[in-house]
């Protein structure tokens, strides 16, 4: 009986560990149940730029804030400041994208010194 139980427990334990490894690490499931806040960083950045581009057309700050809220961050303003400065520092996006983000940050009162040069290139404070 002891022999049976030892083999059973050891087999189950090792099998379960292997199953979890293959199911989560090696072959993760193709999940289609994610939220916008679950997106990878580059897609979150892309989404933010899209909202900033929309804002450049309609100047609808409330709408932009509402859409940025889909990112499920604690402080949308801090997120916008942080994302814009990170993108400026890393040159992760092209100039037009940065310009759009800076314009949105400016109009939401979140302009920082790092963004200032891009605002001046964009025609300054209206």
């Amino acid at each position: 009986m002891r022999r049976f139980l030892t083999s059973l427990i050891l087999g189950l334990l090792l099998g379960a560990l292997a199953g979890l490894y293959f199911g989560w690490i090696q072959f993760p499931p193709a999940n289609r149940n994610s939220a916008i806040s679950d997106l990878a960083q580059r897609h979150r950045d892309d989404y933010t730029v899209m909202i900033a581009a929309g804002f450049a057309v309609d100047r609808d700050a409330a709408g932009a804030l509402e859409r940025l809220g889909k990112l499920d961050v604690d402080d949308i303003y801090a997120y916008l400041r942080g994302a814009t400065e990170r993108i400026i520092r890393s040159s992760a996006r092209d100039f037009d994208d940065i310009r759009l983000l800076v314009r949105l940050a400016h109009d939401l009162g979140q302009l920082t010194p790092a963004m200032q040069p891009f605002l001046e290139l964009d025609g300054g404070d209206p």
């Binding site: 083999s7 059973l8 427990i9 050891l10 087999g11 189950l12 334990l13 090792l14 099998g15 379960a16 560990l17 292997a18 199953g19 979890l20 490894y21 293959f22 199911g23």
Partner: peptide, 10 residues
Amino acid sequence: SLIIGLALGL
């Protein structure tokens, strides 16, 4: 039990 464990894990 290894096979059963693997199936359970997956």
